[in-house]
């Protein structure tokens, strides 16, 4: 299972509305690459496959493919703002380490 904090969910809704994608879900996946080997990837999508795991968090449908869920199970996605910038932050219990910018992890 993966989930969004209320702040992250609000941000997702804000972006989704701004892009005219109301009703679409958020695809969360892991791709190879990044300083620590695996990188998070987020995008809106309205189609799922029978191999996807689907969740809903604060009104946002979340879709995760069968490979990525192995790396993401238990992940909480937050949205943080600070002096160094703003962005989604992944609190991933599977990650052994995370790179400095937080966009990639090792497993």
């Amino acid at each position: 299972m993966i989930s969004l904090t209320p702040k992250a969910a609000d941000k997702v809704k804000e972006i989704r509305e701004a892009e005219g994608l109301e009703g679409q879900g958020l695809r969360v996946r892991v791709i190879g690459g990044g300083c620590s080997g695996f990188t998070y990837d987020l995008f809106f999508e309205d189609e799922t496959t029978e191999l996807d795991s689907t969740f809903e968090s604060d009104g946002i449908p979340l879709y995760v493919d069968m490979m990525s869920i192995q790396y993401l199970d238990g992940t909480l996605i937050d949205y943080v703002e600070g002096l160094h910038g703003a962005g989604f932050k992944f609190l991933n219990p599977t990650a052994k380490s995370t790179c400095g910018c937080g966009s990639s992890f090792s497993a």
Binding site: R29, V30, I31, G32, G33, F38, S68
Partner: peptide, 9 residues
């Protein structure tokens, strides 16, 4: 191979 997740690779 360890770093190919769902990419078309």
């Amino acid at each position: 191979d360890r770093y190919v997740v769902m990419e078309d690779v």
